[in-house]
Nucleic acid binder design. Sequence first.
DNA 1: CTATTTGTTATCGT
DNA 2: TACGATAACAAATA
Length: 258
Amino acid sequence: MPELPEVEGAGAHLRRWTAGRRIVSFHTDDPKLLVLDRGDGSSIGAPVGRVWRRAKYLILEAGDEAWVLHFRMTGELLRGQVPGRARWRLDDGTSLVFADARRLGELWRMPVREVPAFFDAKKLGPEPWPEPRDGAWWAGCLGDARGPLKPVMLDQGRVAGIGNIAASEICWRARLSPLRPANGLSAQEWTRLADAAFAFLDEAVAACSAEEITYINQGGANPFDVYQRDGEPCRRCGEAIVRVVQAGRSTYFCGRCL
DNA sequence: CTATTTGTTATCGT
DNA sequence: TACGATAACAAATA
């Protein structure tokens, strides 16, 4: 379920794994993974350069090439002799693996100079992290939308990187109903949203970037306050968390303290 | 077989 | 025209 924090964490791991290394080879057996290959091959044999994130995309630069990864639902970046859809070998003998159980993720290779145009075409909104954003900023991004707040938060053209989990969690932290029309929030409500969003993202990025812990699912306890907790008591007021569907997506919230 | 899960994109309707 | 809501898609699990 990689959203902004998981992708940022994958970048942190990737930076550690590739610092000072060169890419020796790339291989994939999966014809559907590499959806666009406009590279010149110059990343092979080149030292790894910048590793950065835009929205839910992760970009790895080497030579004059950029590898752009999107994990969609189940994609993840692993290291070692594990199965996956694609593999990069490094000059220290280790491998980077694009693992992806449901095979919805996508990979692009292109000249570094074409990356800005690639993202321009995506029409992504601005980043809510790591730069702290205030209520006026959020109001400017979301405040002209007539639809309910939570689906508007998922619009990558308004603010980039918020996914279905973060949207519910941020609304709960801000004590804002996900059902409220976005254009009906007051200035102080926008400030609550801004503070909740930054706090959630900052904590989640830190957890996802840690060396040891992997943060989400995979057997561990649900780390969230409301996500997939319908029927459980609200951690603030004890009221049962409810689940509704908005724009075809599950939304979780507390109907009493919001 | 059905419902559910994800982000993105295509399409329908107002 | 613009925007919002919905469906489709990929694949697997309960």
